[in-house]
Design a protein around this nucleic acid. Structure first.
Length: 658
RNA sequence: GCCGACGUAGCUCAGGGGUAGAGCAACUGAUUCGUAAUCAGUAGGUCCGCGGUUCAAAUCCGCGCGUCGGCACCA
């Protein structure tokens, strides 16, 4: 006798242990049809398994979020079955469910082609039509290893060999396809449905390690219904429309070309946007007690050796020398040679080191919009988001150990204010604490980690721990923001550094009259201007807030009767600090509206004969079909007020004065 | 760096061993028009680069560069 308690409290009794399927059938046909798996005392299980003991059981249906992962995992298995049928020489490895879909990694000498992708997808649909039963079996470990080896599935055999000794080895069989898997799975392939699509081919390393063999990964997406699949594909199209590379071109912001791969040619409009962001942020830093500096691009190897970069990161550094220098260096590696800076910190320490510092001068916050060059691997480059030359909104705070907490708190407040004003309210933090290999005493680490935690708490920032992921030189906070379409971007960082000041000989004289090394806080809010502007473009889909928009308004005429007036209106707006163009071309107003809308100009000031005579303007906002007509003076005042940069009251740290 | 795909006019893309194509943009002219494309005409090319095969290469092959999607990397 088995008693099963359903989620609504109903209890059902069975003489013999029923399967989940039987239970679902008993409750209702509709439920049985939509069933994907079941939860037995909270544990997800196959519907084909029997419920042996009294338990709380809930049937998971395909509409529920938990079902998606099972569907996607099944899709991966069906893909693997299809691949094995079509290409007997493939070896299967792993195939998990992922966000929005699944993938499967195959080992095969001949690469898959896009045609293979189409064939596999077609075969997958056939397998769904076959409605093969998916059967769970428990196997002996040695038998399983021997079996997979015997059919040439060496990766699978290896996976089983490396499973913990007490793990139960479960095998799932569907048709002729047998795979090691933890489950749970659907009762049969037919239940997968056909709301899936194979998306792309990619290379991926076995176990994610580039020293291992490269496998062929097939990505797919899978959903509970065709409607969901379609919605997802539409969403992908929408995301493509906000791609910063496309918008950057359409809005005339920048371009890139192969003679300077990984670098950016900023056009007038793009540079206007860049400068607006830069000068606004500079104001914030000034108000927060930072002092701005500028340090050399090209620095002697000796400094990079002292900082440790030459040893660890030389492969990613650009050597910049004249011919004689390169020749001398080739003949004698002790010769002087220069490298472009990949980071600003060693240079900032040089400024700190000029003149002996007193504890009274701390904290000293040295800020620099520092242009850095890093030789990033070709495959990593991505538009203006991942480049080889970028400008960090960098600063280094030299302080005492006791000041870490107040400085970190002030920084969190500053950062949150900046993000908020730029339109990002959704921010989370990861605290990366001490790694196994590290520098500095446990007591100092305790203090620094506690300070970072306290700073998060004081700023109302929830943090998650990222254990052991701190740098060898100190713990760090990593600030991630979420954009309108739910993507996460790690931008800000705050790193405590106990090592660099020591390596580069930074000292201050404390109250006790003794020399001590200061603590260095490396910090950035945007991370890099280039990447952040890319994020802004995608976040706003090009429709930047008025204060950031490179062209804030275009005064467009309807007929040439309004030409003189349009010039006057544009000049008046410019006199109020706005970035304005006048469009007096002999084109229809429809044409102008369309063109400036596509160029994402936030405000269109339309003037015709009537406006010129009445000294009014007609305002049309980007993306809105309506318009308002108002007296020129009112419009000037309103637009100028609206275009003002955010003051960021609550974001600015009160404790700014140093 | 690795795997795969791609590279044709300013942009989006078609073509695929035998004279280089379209739409939009540009230019010229006409049109003075009320809120997302006015009409007509003209011009525009190292088909990414270098080598090879061929009577003939944008097209086929090799190498390189770049871009895209992943993977690895991101101090």
């Amino acid at each position: 006798m088995v008693q099963i308690t359903l989620p609504d409290g109903q209890i059902r009794a069975f003489d013999a242990a029923p399967t989940g399927l039987a239970l679902a059938e008993g409750i209702g046909k509709g439920l049985a049809k939509a069933a994907v798996a079941m939860r037995v005392d909270g544990v997800l299980m196959d519907l084909t398994r029997t419920i042996e003991r009294d338990a709380q059981v809930a049937i998971v249906t395909r509409e529920q979020p938990a079902a998606l992962e099972i569907l996607r995992h099944d899709a991966a298995h069906v893909l693997a079955e299809a691949a094995k049928e079509l290409y007997p020489d493939v070896q299967v490895t792993i195939g998990p469910a992922i966000e929005n879909g699944f993938y499967y990694d195959f080992a095969r000498d001949t690469p898959f082609t896009p045609d293979d992708l189409a064939r596999m997808e077609e075969r997958m649909r056939e397998i769904v039509d076959r409605d093969e039963a998916i059967v769970r079996e428990v196997w002996d470990r040695h038998e399983a290893i021997a079996y997979f080896k015997s059919i040439g599935e060496h990766y699978k055999a290896q996976i089983i060999e490396e499973l913990p000794a007490d793990d139960v080895i479960t095998i799932y069989r569907q048709g002729n396809f047998v795979d090691l898997c933890r489950g749970p799975h659907l009762p049969s392939t037919g239940r997968l449905g056909k709301a899936f699509k194979l998306m792309k081919l990619a290379g991926a390393y076995w176990r994610g390690d580039h020293r291992n063999a490269q496998l062929q990964r097939v990505y797919g997406t899978a959903w509970a219904s065709d409607k969901d699949l379609k919605a997802y594909l539409t969403q992908l199209e929408e995301a493509e429309k906000r791609d910063h590379r496309r918008l950057g071109r359409e809005m005339g912001l920048f371009h890139q070309q192969e003679e300077a791969a990984g670098m950016i040619f900023w056009h007038p409009k793009g540079w206007r946007l860049y400068r607006t962001l830069e000068s606004w942020l500079r104001g914030r830093l000034d108000a927060a007690g930072y002092v701005e500096v500028k340090t050399p691009q090209l620095v002697d190897r000796k400094l990079w050796e002292a900082s440790g970069h030459w040893e660890k990161f030389r492969e990613n550094m650009y050597i910049a020398e004249n011919e004689a220098g390169v020749k001398a260096y080739a003949e004698d590696p002790r010769e002087r040679i220069f490298a472009l800076k990949p980071m600003n910190c060693p240079c900032h320490v040089q400024i700190f080191n000029q003149g002996l510092k007193s504890y009274r001068e701390l904290p000293l916050r040295l800020a620099e919009f520092g242009s850095c060059h890093r030789f990033e691997p070709g495959g990593a480059l991505h538009g203006i988001m991942r480049v080889r030359n970028f400008v960090q909104d960098d600063a280094h705070i030299f302080c005492t150990e006791d000041q870490i907490i107040s400085e970190s708190t002030a920084f969190c407040a500053l950062l949150l204010g900046v993000y908020r004003d730029l339109g990002f309210a959704d921010v989370f933090v990861k605290l990366a604490d001490r790694p196994p290999q590290r520098h500095g005493s446990d007591a100092v680490w305790d203090k620094a980690e506690a300070a970072l935690k306290a700073a998060c708490e004081a700023s109302g920032l929830p943090y998650v721990l990222n254990p052991g992921e701190g740098a060898f030189y100190g713990p760090k906070l990593e600030f991630t923001l979420r954009d309108t379409i739910g993507r996460d971007w790690q931008c800000g960082t705050l790193q405590v550094d106990f090592v660099m000041p020591e390596r580069l000989g930074a000292w201050y004289v404390a109250e006790d009259g003794q020399k001590h090394h200061p603590v260095m806080l490396h910090r950035a809010i945007l991370g890099s201007f280039e990447r952040f502007i890319g994020i802004l473009i995608e976040h706003y889909a090009g429709r930047l807030p008025l204060w950031l928009a490179p062209t804030q308004a275009v005064v467009a005429t309807i007929t040439s009767d309004a030409d003189a007036y349009a010039g006057e209106v544009a000049a008046l707006l410019r006199a109020r600090g706005m970035r304005v163009d006048a469009d007096r071309r002999n084109e229809k107003i429809n044409y102008k509206v369309r063109e400036h809308s596509l160029a994402k100009v936030p405000v269109l000031v339309v003037v015709g004969k009537r406006e010129a005579e009445e000294r009014t303007v007609s305002l049309r906002r980007l993306g809105r079909p309506d318009q308002e007509t108002l007296p020129l003076a009112d419009a000037l005042a309103a637009l100028a007020a609206e275009a003002r940069v955010p003051e960021g009251g609550e974001g600015a740290p009160a404790a700014a004065a140093a």
